[in-house]
Design a protein around this nucleic acid. Sequence first.
DNA 1: AGCACGCCGACT
DNA 2: GTCGGCGTGCTC
Length: 803
Amino acid sequence: MEIASVIVDVPTKQTDRVFDYIIPEQWGGVIQPGMRVIVPFGPRNIQGFVIGLKAESEIKKLREILEPMDLEPVLNKELLELGDWLTDHTLCFKIFAYQVMLPAALKAKYEKKVKLAADTAVTELPLQLQPFFEHEDMLDWEAALKNGIVPLLQKEAAKGQLEVIYLVKERVKKKQQKYVKPSMTLAELSKEIDRIPANAEKQRQILRFFIENYHEIELRKLVSEVKTSTSTVKALVEKKLLTEFEMEVYRNPFAHRTFERTKPLPLTDAQQTAIAPILDAIERNQHEVFLLYGVTGSGKTEIYLQSIQEVIEKGQEAIVLVPEISLTPQMVNRFKGRFGDLVAVLHSGLSAGEKYDEWRKIQRKEVKVAVGARSAIFAPFENIGIMIIDEEHETSYKQEEMPRYHARDVAIERALNYNCPVVLGSATPSLESFARAQKKVYHLLSLPNRMNNQSLPSVEIIDMREELREGNRSMFSRKLFEMLKDRIEKKQQSVLFLNKRGHSSFVMCRDCGYVMNCPNCDISLTYHRVNEHMKCHYCGYESYVPKHCPECNSEYIRYFGTGTQKVEEELGKILPEARVIRMDVDTTGKKGSHERLLTDFKDGKADILLGTQMIAKGLDFPNITLVGVLSADTMLHLPDFRASEKTFQLLTQVSGRAGRHQLPGEVIIQTYTPEHYSVVLAGKQDYDLFYQQEMLIRKTRQYPPFYYLSLITVSHEQLITVVSEMEKVVKHIRSHVSSGTVVLGPAASPIPRINNRYRYQCLIKYKREPNLIKILKTILDQYQKDTKSGLQVSIDVNPFILM
DNA sequence: AGCACGCCGACT
DNA sequence: GTCGGCGTGCTC
């Protein structure tokens, strides 16, 4: 008897283990590890992953697998093992580890229905129920709830007239398209054409078409080509002259675009030096992590492209990760342009179906290169030759939900398996990576100069306090205003960057300073202009903007925070002749609008591009000669030990947008803290000095890269319970870790309450703590097992956000 | 997560 | 005496 070990799709501690099922005779030899199956679980049917096969089980009363959901495994052996690794290292449920590796379309959808029993007629049911089963023998549970007939249904179910069934469905179907082909040889077809009645001219035309083009064709195409209708084609199908059939086709998100093919560019001496060790590692199948540290515009992408070229020529595959926000058409073009159809692109802009199709191309090995955001690191290749992570320092590579993995760690883990190199590229490497490069853990490759030796843009830092002192209350310094005007006259383009993170618009009373907070969470509500609403980002609470301040009844209550809209309005006032394109969540919401706005700007349809984070990256137009940062320090004061690093990185990235071609670029950075080293050094584009300064601070404050971090957060409705339980946790940890380890807490979270649950946390800083995962696991086991305490514990190993 | 089983209060 | 509240524990 064959038995399958299954991980079921129920994300709880109690079910986070293997369940054994009998493989029914009919599926013997078909069901393999890595396949999804439908299994009975208690009273319902759910999805599960087969992770292994065995001959016997200790469990007596085994049930049978109902059916496989796949014809071939969706997770190969390597990915199944990677799932174990993910579970161990991020302390997540197994089911989450497997699900994160697959496109969302493969996540099951569950439906509960009520079905008329086989031997029961509709008329046997109570009159009240009969209408619901007149046309169909199934009824959605949802519909039953809405109509309030659940008790009645249950009564009938008990009698055996009705049964409750549980369906497991795919989220997205493979896209099928209708095709037509001749069902006989060319010669036979030519004969048949004469037998077509004289009045059936269209049918004859269709046959003539097939005689000239003797091959299958998409039905829709045929109809438009011959200018006929589907019914005419149907007639021929009925006469058995043609055959209609369905074929799986891929949705092609790039169908409307052509990609200009590019050839490898000649490398500069610096690039040559940098690429040599990578090519060498590819050649020798050697696992090595490279940190490609190259200033903006130094030609990192060409190094990626030529390394991939080498990998493809070796018959291997490549994964390229790019941050979601810079996964722009420009970026995609560079890969598609070089490798054409060998590239699959996975990003959030695609529909679930499109993403699934791109994933299928990878699974079927029809492509050699996968380009995508974080989760593309799980691309199901089986012969990986290189993994590249561009903009390595980006925080979006860390997932903040379960499984809380970092794409860089996954890349390195997979690379060990394939004996292949990993390339981390950045103009402003994360301190962690640069420190590892200094310690020779990573192999450092530098590109210190821009291509063609263009000079880096000149940067000027403007002290906005000074502006205010001299009576300028606008958000534009006089210098920036002058320069914007100058660029418009010269017909050159400018980019204005607004750093909104951590500074979202909130409502405040100008008289008493009252700020609108969420009643469930200790955080201010965010103003949404679209529906004139206030919304809590954590629990979804919504409220209207009050006309009068609830505290002092003043009517001077209004929203604060400089949004892009406000900047746009102000620009309209001071520079009415300027043509402005605004890019933010509001204007880029619709599919393709992001691309359209950028094309418009590229084509010179605007003088100024105004936007948030999303314009900080990948923008590379020749006519941009001015970049203005409206307020450099908005995120400098966040309660985050990486605040300086993030500020430095952002300012450096933004500055890099100017003067990348013939025209020299200038950058204006407006700030209220011009003396802060991250602002000053970003102005000088001096990464090395910044690194040294920041490392000193990290060392004294015992933060990464000198220490590793783990964060435990406990939440409960009762404040006392959280504090006392957290104290127990802290005590437990303190007694189990080594003396060099620092355990901070219990302390209230930076957001002390979310959704009426109080949150306390404990931060563990350690250099070497081989048993920490085990210790953390016991804590999770203890708390997740008993659900009745109402305590929630979450653990983030190597957190990026300490909230 | 669902769902069933099971033990206590307010109704016919 | 029964219906139904949700506390507890199980799902191969």
